[in-house]
């Protein structure tokens, strides 16, 4: 059983329904996808347009050796496959394409 699946009792739960910040990271919305964004590292110019528009915080970024932020991939645990990233990627770059999700 996963940790988050263990349901606490009234005696164990914090009063008032208090939740520690950011626990939704453990909740996977990836299985919602019917379409999967596929990121092409070689085409990507790391303009971060996909990152700023993604509603699901699912564009992975990291600083490179020059401390400049670059895209490093897609967080498939949380990506719901809406396709905004592919749509917003500059047409001349076209680094993200949507493909059918294989179930």
């Amino acid at each position: 059983m996963k940790k988050e699946d263990k349901k606490l009792t009234a005696a164990e739960l914090p009063a008032g329904g208090l939740l520690e910040g950011g626990t939704a990271e453990n909740f996977k919305t990836g299985p919602w996808r019917s379409q999967r964004p596929v990121w092409n590292k070689d085409k990507c110019i790391s303009c971060l347009t996909c990152w700023i528009y993604c509603p699901d915080s699912a564009i992975k970024i990291a600083p490179d050796e020059k401390k400049t932020t670059v895209v490093t991939g897609i967080d498939y645990d949380h990506c719901k496959g809406c396709g905004i990233c592919a749509r917003e990627c500059p047409p001349k770059v076209a680094a993200i394409t949507m493909e059918e999700e294989k179930k």
Binding site: K7, L8, T9, A10, L13, A15, G16, G17, L18, L19, E20, G21, G22
Partner: peptide, 24 residues
Amino acid sequence: RPFTLGAIDLQDYYFEHRYQLAQA
């Protein structure tokens, strides 16, 4: 020490939280 208070509580937790209130 950020926390969230006021989350939606569905069938699996609401009853425990209301029990806590009655017990309090």
